[in-house]
């Protein structure tokens, strides 16, 4: 079954076409990475899938049900988004932030129950931020904060998890930590992972399948070994790239050629 099906969608904003007749499918419990140059429509696609963007034409369905038939609450219980940035003017503690992931499961004035606290605790353990539970969000490092947001996302118990460049601002060790967390989440809970990334090497190591966007369209999709070849990359990114095999993992390794 397809977790997500995007069928010929077009998104316009401010007279500019951001996504132009894009189609793609994501299978259940697949680890999909979306790559492409800046302005190709990656973030727009992600936001469209979680209903944050108005789609002018085409249709999006989740588990064969049209996106429009989901209420915000149902949607939040089905999928979560780890966004690129988050406002932190008035900062909650880590535990309070993660617990907010239970919002779609609670009634208007209903309090979080013991079970909700337990789910939040497990999510914090999973991303190893449980020792920070009482700290305020604005006192954390970038890597810690990203893990808190992912814990909040996990706390929503989504079947699909969307991530918008979750490793962009992190050092190599934290990048790897985040990718491994996603891999584990998929293996242990069958969560479908859809991630936007600029890091072709991380994509090569962890993705089942890569979708390549260019100028608002999905121009290619395939397993990393098929898709990450010099001809394709040069055509899309417009610069020379050398591809060989990673000596440890055996996955494609992309290097820039100056």
């Amino acid at each position: 079954m397809n977790a997500v099906r995007v069928d010929n969608i077009t998104v316009r904003a401010g007279g500019k076409i951001l996504v132009d007749g894009l189609s793609c499918e994501v299978k259940e419990s697949e680890f999909l990475v979306i790559i492409g140059p800046n302005g190709a429509g990656k973030t727009t696609l992600l936001k469209s899938i979680c209903g944050l963007n108005k789609v002018q034409s085409g249709r999006i369905s989740l588990y064969d049900k049209p996106l429009g038939s989901f209420s915000r609450r149902d949607l939040a219980a089905t999928m979560s988004l780890v966004p690129q940035n988050m406002e932190m003017e008035f900062s909650f503690s880590v535990a309070e932030t993660v617990l907010m992931g239970r919002y779609p499961y609670l009634g208007m004035l209903e309090q979080e129950k013991r079970a909700d606290h337990e789910i939040a605790r497990q999510a914090m353990e999973f991303t190893r931020v449980d020792h920070l539970a009482k700290r305020r969000l604005d006192q954390l490092s970038g890597g810690e904060r990203q893990r808190v947001i992912i814990a909040r996302s996990i706390c929503q118990q989504p079947r699909i998890m969307l991530l918008d460049e979750p490793t962009a601002a992190l050092d190599p060790s934290h990048q790897l930590t985040i990718m491994k967390l996603m891999q584990r989440l998929r293996e242990e809970q069958n969560t479908t992972i859809i991630m936007v990334s600029h890091d072709l090497n991380l994509a090569a190591m962890f993705a089942h399948r890569i979708v390549l966007l260019q100028e608002g369209r999905a121009v290619q999709s395939g397993i990393p070994g098929e898709l990450l070849v010099p001809e394709v990359l040069q055509q899309v990114y417009g610069c020379l790239m050398h591809v060989d095999t990673h000596p440890v993992t055996g996955t494609p390794r992309v290097s820039l050629v100056p």
Partner: peptide
Amino acid sequence: FILARPMNLLLMGRENAAVLGVEV
């Protein structure tokens, strides 16, 4: 007072609140 919890979520930004299930 009834809307206090969604207000908490709105502090993280409109999009964050929306993906957490708030009818922003």
